[in-house]
Amino acid sequence: MIAFSAALAIAGSAIAAAWAEKAIGSAAIGAMAEKEELFGKGLILTVIPETIVIFGFAIAFFILGLAK
């Protein structure tokens, strides 16, 4: 049960992060096609949702800690 919860936490947050990055990433590429200097800013905006999966990882990690 605990292992399953941890997996769920990771999976859910990973899907959410991927979903968010998908939209931002394609928009960032579009903007870069117009103006190449936007690479830095595009990269930042694209990786912002990664925090979601990091939080998911942290939660999963603490859930696994419950098992001990």
Binding site: E50, T51, I54, F55, F57, A58
Partner: peptide
């Protein structure tokens, strides 16, 4: 600050 947990992850 919690975002730095990625250092571990």
């Amino acid at each position: 600050i919690l975002s730095y947990l990625r250092l571990m992850a």
